[in-house]
Simulated scan of single mutants.
Amino acid sequence: MNDSLISIILPTYNRAHFLPACLDSVFAQTYTNWELVVIDDGSTDSTVEVLEKYSDPRIVYIYQDNQGVSAARNTGIAQCKGEYIALLDSDDEWMPKKLEIQLKYMQANGFEICQTNEIWVRKGKRVNQPAKYVKPEGWFFEASLNMCLISPSCTMFTRKAWGDIGPFDVHMPSCEDYDMWLRACLVYPIGLVSEQLTIKHGGREDQLSNCVPCADLYRIRALVKILQCGKLDADQAATAMQELETKVLIYRQGCEKRGKNDEADKVWNLFCMIRDGKEIPLNTLR
Rank of each mutant, 00 (worst) to 15 (best):
Y63I: 00
Y251Q: 06
S46K: 13
L5N: 03
D92I: 03
L88G: 02
C255S: 09
G42W: 07
D56V: 02
T75F: 04
I119N: 06
C22T: 13
G76Q: 05
T47S: 09
G254W: 05
C211E: 10
R15E: 15
P281I: 00
F140K: 01
C148L: 06
M156W: 09
F140P: 09
K160C: 03
T246W: 08
Y13Q: 11
V37C: 14
I77S: 02
Y54V: 04
A108Q: 13
K278I: 04
K200R: 08
Q207T: 09
Y31M: 06
R204N: 11
F27P: 00
C272F: 06
H201S: 13
R258W: 07
G42I: 13
C211K: 13
P136W: 01
A184F: 12
C214T: 05
K53H: 15
L208G: 08
I101N: 13
C272K: 13
A71N: 05
S4D: 14
E256F: 04
D89E: 14
I220L: 12
A238E: 12
H201F: 12
K231L: 10
G82I: 06
L99D: 07
P136H: 07
L285M: 07
L88A: 04
R219L: 04
M95I: 13
Q207D: 14
W94C: 01
Y54R: 03
S70H: 02
G191A: 02
T246E: 11
N128W: 12
T32C: 11
G277F: 07
I250H: 14
Y178H: 10
R221G: 02
D91M: 00
I165T: 09
E205S: 08
Q107M: 10
R159Q: 12
R286Y: 09
C214W: 14
N14W: 07
T44K: 08
D177K: 14
Q107Y: 11
E49K: 09
V48G: 15
L186K: 07
T47M: 07
G202S: 08
E137W: 01
C22E: 00
V69S: 10
